[in-house]
Structure formats: structure tokens, C-alpha cells
Nucleic acid binder design. Structure first.
Lengths: 333, 333
DNA sequence: TTGAAAGCGCTAACAA
DNA sequence: TTGTTAGCGCTTTCAA
């Protein structure tokens, strides 16, 4: 059996309440008493039981994190941002991958409630009414990271995807002089992807450029589908001279797909990525890309959650972080 | 206040013990009673409190996972393997990144003990005596994933790094005809890295080839240090015609570093990676690499842990998974 | 500044 | 098949 607060109390000749005060840093303890207790703790190798504490205090100092897939570099960076801030505020993280499966997302959330997490950071493709209902009924704060809820009822941290894509396309049109631009979308058709597609279309239409449906290719966010997208676009009668993508990984696929066909990037084809993951400089030429600061999104989300947890004043719970375009060598300009 | 087992009992006109039996799937309950209880649970929206359960049963069904850095693709894959099996066995994962800092590793382990995790999966550069002592004194099972403990006292899952490197070098020598081979090591000098270096040296010496110290470059496991390694090796008077690396990411750096200098891979230089991460096919030419099945290592580690947790028979607790060389186009053969 | 005592919500003997 | 009764190890009033 392990050492309890009770054993410590006996050893130090005080009551368990005093021991509890000491381990919780309560100031109402006489220094000498504190010293005595600390000595006993040390001697016995006492280690507080967080589960018992959680039951008694109704606080577990752990937060749930639900993300699509931890093995994806993109989400992993987000997770790291969350973790670093969580550590700073002494929270533990219970991590689960959902594979963007709605029911699994809801199940995981439920499991986390059973575990009595103090709060949750959620990342997923879309936020259904069921999600919102579950989040609101839970009585714990939930923050959406890189995930938009159209009802705006749940606190969230994002960038402005609509404008971000437009900025990238602007670069292609104005600095590259491109007229025909393809877009490699993510077939998930998440709320965010919808914004991106809409931004893409609106921008081109504003420039009097057409966006026939065949200029939008549905990828699945993998390198392989980037390869296929290149195949597809370059086989078109009127092949685009620039390709915008919804992620760096697909952009890498497009670059290599085009190079495999003998094209020179960016002379024959410009390619733009999205996210600015570490991947974007691990290719030749290096990728022009939209910076989505995943680590920061994670960190800011967690920070926001800690405020919610401590009932601190939160001036704005729909946080929009700045984005920007990094121009490297995969586009002409 | 939330609904408790007690409320359910009252509603269903049974004792709390019966409710407990129902939610735990105990078979000693009359079907009609079970139905009554289930109905009450449903009606009240009862959700069992895992913390209370954990305190009473001394089992939390959660396991701690300590890895160097979740934002590293390599570790993230391991984490996913762990997670999938954990989910399968209904365990939750408490995840923490250690940055390979020994003290932090020990701290994290301690924190996890406070949280009363049922077991821990540990991954780190080296396992000191303090680690072994902490693990053994903890009274919970610990499994090392892709991490070797020279004392062999802690269950672990690995591949044979020594032989793996030798197989790769063998390929370089026998099929590529290389005489001068450089090695990009990981400066962490982890136990595993030591094995790799030793394997590298022994293999070359067996072939009567020299291994002067300047043919071993200390990288830091990043793409950037691969770039620098290429710079270094190609600036040597007697530049190697092949470079072995300790990770795919560094291999990618070497490939691009060499290409930036106008060399053709593999005609002018052969490059071999390590791990077979997804990165290895995201480069031209695609990487010849040593397959270290990270997902499997994670999955097998977790499976082993569940056996330990359930006191199942474990025939061998020092698991060595098979490795192999995938020959792609970054080496001549 | 300290102690006594009542829970937190559940499991697990033990009895019935 | 069901109920009774102790805890699990801690926090948190309330009193002293």
C-alpha cells in the first residue's frame, strides 16, 4: 500500500488537514509546522494521489485534446503548442485521435467527460449541431483550434482562411501574371475548406477570371494525391500555369508530379502550398506557402482555455491569428 | 451537481450496488433489473465518474506516454501506434513531451504516478540508472519503445539497430561498390545511436575499409543538419561516394545539399536514410532507407503493456522487431 | 494556526 | 440475485 496523507500526519504529529494545507501551499501554516510536515513527506516518500484529490476537489488539472490524427505533422505541431502551454499551467493532456469521424469525436468527448477533464481543446473538420449541443451541455469550457463553428457559439482560434487563399492567389495573379489557376482542395469539405474554395473562386471572379469546375481538384491531403493532382491538371487541354493547394504536403506532391513530367518549377508551373509546415523547405524549389501558425494556434487555444478555466476576463473568444504569404522559389515573381 | 449512481439507484428502485454491477457489465443481474437500471440511466443522463471509480478500484485505465517530441513526425507515428492499441483496449493516453531532458523525463514520470496511471510507455535517448530505479520502484509496468536499456531490466520493443546499419552499409558496399562512406550521426549519442555507429564501424572494418573519424558527422536529426553534413562531406579532400544517415530527415537534407552543389543522386553520390518515414518518398530521387516500423513499435509496446497490466503470460519482454532495407533510387545498385 | 469530521462517487467484500 | 457497508485518499467547511 502506498503512503497517504494520513501516514504523513501521524509521522509529523499533526492532523491530516495540516498536511493537506502544506502540500497545497496554503499559507496558514506555521513555518515550523510546515518544516516538520515537509520532513515527514520526504522521509516517507509521500506522493499525493491526484485521483483522490480530483474526487474531493472536483478538479483534475487535466484537459482533453481531440485532434484528427496525431501522426500528421500538421496536427502534431498544434498538439505541441497545446502541450507546452498546458505544461506551463500545470495541466496534463489526455490526447485522442478522431480520424475526423463525427461519432468518434462525440464518443471521445463523452469519454473525456467521464474522466472529468477540466476542459477540452477540439480540432475537427466540421462542428455539427450535435457537437455544439454536446459542448454546451458539458459544463466545461471547450476551445476549437483551427476549427470553425459557424454558429460562433464556441470559443475558437483560427486564421482567416478565406482571405489567406485570396492573398495567395493575388500573388499568383499580380506578381506571376497567371490567368489559369488550378486548386487542389481537400475532399473533406470541412467548413474551413469551404472557406478556402469560396475565397479562391471569389478572388478569381473579381479579377474577371473564370473558375470552371474542372480547375478544382479534390485531393485527400496526402502527398500521393498531390501527385495525382499534377497528373490531372497537366493532362488538361488548357492546363493551368499555376496551382494553389490546400496543404504543403499536397503541394510537394504537385511539385514532384510536375517535375516527373519534365516541367520546371516555377518556369513552367508555379505551385503554392498552405500551412508552412517544415515540409515546405524540404523540397526543391522551396515552397511559396501560406503561413498558418499551427504551434501558435495550439498555444493560444490552450492559453484561452486556461483563462476560461480560471474564470479570467476574456475580451474576445473568437480569436483570429494573422496569416501571411512566404514567397520562396516555387512561384515566379 | 451531476447525476450519481445513487440517483440512478433511487430512480430504478434498486441499491447502488446493483447499478454499479450494471454499468460494469457484471452478469449477476436479473435481465429485468438490468433493463430497469438502464432505463433510469438513460432517463437521468447518468455518466459514470471515472475519477471516483479510479479511487475506489485503484485502476484508472489510463497509461502515460513519455516521448521526446510529439511534433516530430517520427515520434508522432509511434504515438499513433500506441494510441490505436490503447483505444482498442479501452485505455486513455496521457501524453507528454520530454525533449530528451533527463530531469524532465523523471519529473513527468513522477507526475504520471501521481495521476495513478496504470502503466507507462517510455521513449527517450538513454535510460540511466535513475530511470531504471524509478521505473522499478513505481510498482507499475513500464515498457520502453524504440529505446534501449542496457541493463535489460525493463521490457522493451526495438529493432536491431546494429545489424540494421550493417545491412544498409552492406548494400552500399556490395551493390554500389562504394569504398568511402560517410555517416551522419545523431549528436544525442543515445544508446541506440551508439549501436548504429558501432555497427557502421564494425561493418567497414570487416571489409578492410578504414573509418577515419572525419567520416562521421554529428548532426542533430534535422533537415538543416543534413544540409550541413552534405556541405561538410563534399568539401572533404577525399569526399565519400556514399552517405549513410541516422534518419530520413537528415538524408533529405543530404540529398538536397548535394543537389544544390550540382551533384546527381545517385550517380555522383548515394544516400541512405533511416526509419522509412513518409518523408522518404517525398523527395526526388526517392530514398533508399532502413525500415524502422515506428507505428508497429508503438502498437507492440502498447500491446505488451496491456499484457503486463492484465498479468498475462509474456514469453519475451525484450521484443526485437524485424527491420529491412527498402532500395529506392537514392543509391546505385 | 490547527483539528475534527463530513463528504467526493464509486467498488468490493460480505451478507442475505 | 440483490443490498449493506466500508473504505479509496483527499479537500473543505466549521470550530476551536
Amino acid at each position: 500500500m502506498s503512503v497517504t496523507i494520513y501516514d504523513v500526519a501521524k509521522k509529523a504529529n499533526v492532523s491530516m488537514a495540516t498536511v493537506s494545507r502544506v502540500i497545497n501551499g496554503n499559507t496558514n501554516v506555521k513555518p515550523t509546522t510546515r518544516k516538520k510536515v515537509l520532513a515527514a513527506i520526504d522521509e516517507l516518500g509521500f506522493r499525493p494521489n491526484a485521483v483522490a484529490r480530483g474526487l474531493a476537489s472536483r478538479k483534475t488539472t487535466s484537459v482533453g485534446v481531440i485532434i484528427p490524427d496525431i501522426s500528421n505533422m500538421f496536427f502534431a505541431e498544434l498538439a505541441r503548442g497545446i502541450e507546452d502551454i498546458a505544461t506551463m499551467y500545470k495541466y496534463h493532456i489526455i490526447l485522442s485521435s478522431s480520424d475526423q469521424n463525427l461519432n468518434r469525436e462525440l464518443d471521445l468527448f463523452d469519454n473525456m467527460l467521464e474522466k472529468q477533464v477540466d476542459g477540452v481543446i477540439f480540432m475537427g473538420g466540421s462542428v455539427s449541431e450535435d457537437h455544439v449541443k454536446a459542448f454546451k451541455n458539458s459544463n466545461i469550457p471547450v476551445v476549437l483550434a483551427a476549427t470553425v463553428d459557424e454558429s460562433n457559439e464556441i470559443p475558437s482560434v483560427n486564421i482567416d482562411y478565406y482571405t489567406a487563399i485570396q492573398d495567395a492567389v493575388h500573388h499568383l495573379i499580380e506578381e506571376g501574371g497567371h490567368q489559369t489557376i488550378g486548386y487542389v482542395a481537400n475532399h473533406s469539405r470541412s467548413t474551413i475548406e469551404q472557406s478556402k474554395i469560396q475565397g479562391f473562386k471569389d478572388k478569381l471572379e473579381k479579377q474577371q477570371l473564370e473558375v470552371p469546375n474542372h480547375l478544382i481538384y479534390e485531393g485527400d491531403d496526402t502527398y500521393q494525391s498531390g501527385l495525382k493532382a499534377a497528373d490531372y491538371f497537366l493532362g488538361l487541354d488548357e492546363a493551368p500555369s499555376a496551382i494553389m493547394t490546400s496543404s504543403d504536403e499536397m503541394a510537394l506532391g504537385v511539385v514532384h508530379g510536375a517535375q516527373d513530367k519534365g516541367l520546371k518549377i516555377p518556369d513552367d508551373l508555379s505551385v503554392v502550398g498552405f500551412d508552412n509546415t517544415r515540409l515546405s523547405v524540404m523540397v526543391r524549389p522551396e515552397l511559396t506557402t501560406v503561413v498558418q501558425p499551427m504551434y501558435d494556434i495550439g498555444a493560444v487555444s490552450m492559453r484561452l482555455l486556461t483563462k476560461l478555466l480560471k474564470n479570467e476576463e476574456v475580451s474576445e473568444d473568437q480569436v483570429v491569428l494573422p496569416h501571411r504569404i512566404i514567397k520562396r522559389s516555387s512561384t515566379n515573381h
